[in-house]
C-alpha cells in the first residue's frame, strides 16, 4: 500500500526515495553518462522541489518530473557552455573510490548506449520515454508538449537508427571474430 504523496517536504522525500533510481536510469539513458545523469537528476529534483505543491496538485507527478528532466536535458544539450565554468581552484577533493566506481561502469559502454549517443536529443528523449516508461505516443506528446505526428516520426526514425547501428555492430563483431579465428597461430 502506497501512501498518498503530500505537497510538503516529507512527501517530496518520500517520492524521491521511491523514484530516484528510475529517474537516474532515465537520465543515464538520455545523457549516456552516469556523471551527467546525476547532475541532471539533481537539477531536476531541485526544480521539482521548488514547484512541489503545484506538482502534487496536478496529480501526475511522474509526468511532470519527466517533463522537467527531458527539458533540462535538451536545454543542456543546446547550451553546453552553460554547464561549464572556470574556477580558480578545485572546490573539493575528488573521491577516488567514487570515481573508480563510475569509471568501472562507464567502461561497459553498451551497443545501445553508443547507438543512443549518436541520436539527436529530441529523438533520444522520445525513445527513452517510450521504452522505459512504456508510454503511448499520446502520453509522450502530452509530456513533451509536442504534436503526436512529431513523436511518431521521432520514434520511427530513432528506432530505425538504433536498429541499423546495432546491426552494424553485430556485423563488425562477427567480422572481427571471423578474422581472429582465421588468423594463423604464431608459434
Amino acid at each position: 500500500m502506497v501512501d498518498e504523496i503530500t505537497p510538503d517536504e516529507a512527501g517530496f522525500r518520500q517520492w524521491v526515495a521511491g523514484r530516484s533510481t528510475a529517474l537516474r536510469r532515465k537520465a543515464y539513458l538520455l545523457s549516456g553518462s552516469w556523471h551527467t545523469a546525476d547532475d541532471l537528476v539533481q537539477e531536476t529534483l531541485i526544480a521539482s522541489y521548488a514547484a512541489w505543491p503545484r506538482i502534487v496538485k496536478a496529480r501526475d507527478i511522474e509526468a511532470y518530473v519527466n517533463r522537467i528532466l527531458v527539458n533540462k536535458y535538451v536545454d543542456n544539450q543546446r547550451r553546453p557552455w552553460r554547464r561549464e565554468r572556470s574556477v580558480g581552484a578545485v572546490p573539493e577533493p575528488v573521491d577516488s573510490s567514487s570515481r573508480d566506481a563510475f569509471d568501472a561502469v562507464e567502461d561497459r559502454d553498451s551497443p545501445l548506449a553508443q547507438a543512443l549517443g549518436a541520436l539527436p536529443a529530441g529523438q533520444r528523449a522520445v525513445l527513452v520515454l517510450r521504452y522505459t516508461e512504456d508510454l503511448t505516443v499520446e502520453a509522450i506528446a502530452d509530456e513533451l508538449d509536442l504534436p503526436q505526428g512529431t513523436v511518431k516520426s521521432r520514434l520511427s526514425r530513432g528506432s530505425e537508427a538504433i536498429r541499423s547501428e546495432l546491426e552494424r555492430n553485430r556485423l563488425l563483431l562477427a567480422h572481427s571474430a571471423a578474422t581472429s579465428t582465421s588468423k594463423p597461430k604464431e608459434l
Binding site: T21, R25, L29, D38, V105
Partner: peptide
C-alpha cells in the same frame, strides 16, 4: 532498454 543501465554506480 530494460537491460540498459542496470549496473549503476552508487548514487
Amino acid at each position: 532498454f530494460n537491460e540498459e543501465g542496470r549496473h549503476a554506480p552508487p548514487s
